[in-house]
Amino acid sequence: MEATPKEQPKVQPKAPPEFFVSIGPHMRTEESTAKIMWTVNAALLPATLMSVYFFGLPAILVIIVSILAAVMAEAGMQKLLKKDVTVSDGSAFLTGLLIAMNVPANIPLYIPAVASVVAIAITKHLFGGLGYNVFNPALIGRAFILVSFAKPMTTYTQPVANIMAMDAKTMATPLSLLKEDGIAKLLEVYPNIYQDLLMGNRAGSLGETATIALLLGAVFLMIKRYITWHIPITFIATVGLLTWVFGGKSGLMTGDPLFHMMSGGLILGAFFMATDYVTGPSIRIAQVLFGVSCGALTVLIRLKGGYPEGVMFAILLMNCFAPLLDRGMRSRVFGKAAAKGVKK
């Protein structure tokens, strides 16, 4: 679903002759890759501001470094591969921003830079550039640094709500507390857990904490119709349903869906990363299946896997299946006979 109509010269003369017939298309959209990408960047603005509010100066530095590294990697790779440099379309900017949103605030700055370079150079450009990448670049970048630098990537800090605070106390995320120490410890550290989750007053990656700011951006994108409900809502609903059924300690149907839906990177991942046009399916029914599968995999990893959070791996795994889903769900063209000797 590459919404990049070619720039075509407008052929409509000002005073048309009596019988002017032009060749279609007659209606053109004003959308372009650049416009969509910058709008998504704008939709992430509330969450970015909240992260700066909660984590202070380190957050600003991480955001600047990630974006700069991503943009430079994009320009460098495009120069190297002798392509047009399309830095201004905002897609590298978005990748960099998403990487910044996905790392802890007090991380050594070279780590997000490595992630940005891996994301842009390897995941995107070695696979053919924008529109050809199989996996979400930002998530591959994050997976790369999560495996390479496990310790700094999982050392989260307490939100300080102080712009100049350079060193904050470390603090576990709600999900890892739940996984390692159980519900009692979780409530001890986070007494107002729901409120903290909603506002973002909790330990976590930069952009994943402020649920309400992320939802604001998501609603904006949905109103603009840049994303539809098919992937994110099914994704989140599946996580809610499955954690409600299987997430409780005292039997079935005792889990806490609200907690699971608002914690971790689920909101960020579901609205801003699973909905990537390039790496997700584009047929509606396939999108629903994609969302449900992402949700199921996330819950599986959260409840049974080694990592406390599974959104990233779930989306990456399902990225592999996106072309298959699209192909499998393609509606048959009416009146078209199956080609002889070609089996589906």
Partner: peptide, 22 residues
């Protein structure tokens, strides 16, 4: 310095193989 641990894992093997082949 802290190395890129991923390169000695199987994943890194595939990364290295693909990059080097290219």
């Amino acid at each position: 310095t802290k190395p890129l641990l991923i390169m000695i894992m199987p994943t890194g093997g595939f990364f290295a193989m693909g990059l080097m082949m290219g």
